[in-house]
């Protein structure tokens, strides 16, 4: 069973389509990177996963339960850090943690909360008011607040924002530890591919609210294979044929505009021959050197 299962999720604000027919799934225990430029729809998607924003269409299932019907049950087992948390500035770290633990329906002992603050590197400032904290410290406290009720799923929206290089390293290690040692599922968004490459097991890339690609990071970053974008004069027929052909296993994504395949360079002439023999008018068969290049090209387009 997938921890998160999203199907055809869409949301618009007035005339702006923030998320467009987005589907993806997150497996238990993995670090799932959610990549996209600023304004690509990442935060809106995350807010829909947390029921802060109501989707126009689509279904969200978390832990196998419908978010619409079992909101509280799901959120009891979910922790979230959403953008830059300011928290309660007039309270100290300890008091903030206590509030969020109680809001999650859990009572935590002082010792447990101190351990958590130690985990995020704030034990020494537990009694300081949050208004005296740097952005990085607030970010760490935000993470502690997300973890205080020991959730199974952790959703982090741009958690590295505002952190200094050491803070980024610490945050990265902590996220890896949560997934590897504590078997938590981490859904993490970022606009930096390099950052995701270092921690994610799987990756979903979106642009202008639409999915560009999704898959296992090793497969997506495989140096022996290149991503190939195929455009023909008749995309529906091409998609129909290719998904039933010997090339089906190489298809990463098929949309109305283009088909994306993961191939070895040597396979390209054969694919071209097959397409020609099927009488498809090949407009473009374009290989990309890396995922980053692919990502950037899609964004430019």
């Amino acid at each position: 069973m997938n921890i998160i299962e999203v199907k055809n999720l869409s949301k618009s604000f007035g005339s702006i389509q923030a998320v467009n027919q987005l589907s993806f799934s997150v497996k238990p225990g993995e670090i799932y990177g959610f990549l996209g430029q600023n304004g690509s729809g990442k935060s809106t998607t995350i807010r829909m996963l947390l029921s802060l924003v109501m989707p126009d269409t689509g279904d969200i299932e978390i832990f196998g339960l419908s978010l619409q019907k079992h909101r509280n049950e799901i959120l009891k087992n979910t922790g979230a850090l959403i953008e830059r948390p300011d928290l309660y500035k007039y309270l100290n770290a300890f008091e903030n943690l206590e509030i969020f633990a109680r809001l999650s329906g859990k009572k935590k002992s002082r010792k447990q909360m101190m351990e958590l603050l130690e985990k995020v590197g704030l034990a020494g400032r537990a009694q300081s008011k949050v208004k005296t904290y740097s952005q990085g410290m607030k970010q760490r406290l935000g993470l502690a607040c997300a973890l205080v009720h020991d959730p199974q799923l952790i959703i982090l929206d741009e958690p590295m924002n505002g952190l200094d290089p050491q803070g980024i390293t610490d945050m990265r290690e902590l996220i890896i530890q949560l997934s590897r040692k504590e078997q938590k599922t981490v859904f993490i968004s970022s606009h930096l591919l390099s950052e995701m490459q270092q921690i994610a097991d799987s990756l979903l890339i979106i642009h202008k609210g639409k999915k560009i690609t999704e898959g296992n990071l090793n497969e997506l970053m495989n140096p022996e294979k290149v991503r190939v974008e195929l455009i023909t004069t008749d995309m529906p027929k091409t998609a129909h044929w290719i998904t039933r052909s010997a090339w089906a296993g190489s298809v990463v994504e098929a949309t109305q505009e283009a088909i994306c395949l993961l191939l070895q360079k040597e396979q390209l002439p054969q694919l071209n021959n097959d397409l020609v023999s099927q009488r498809f008018g090949v407009v473009s068969l374009r290989p990309y050197l890396s995922l980053e290049e692919y990502f950037l090209t899609q964004i430019r387009e």
Partner: peptide, 14 residues
């Protein structure tokens, strides 16, 4: 304004 509403509303409270 303080950014805490989204944290509270993402908790299991109606």
């Amino acid at each position: 304004a303080a950014g805490t509403l989204r944290l509270i509303a993402a908790k299991p409270i109606s």
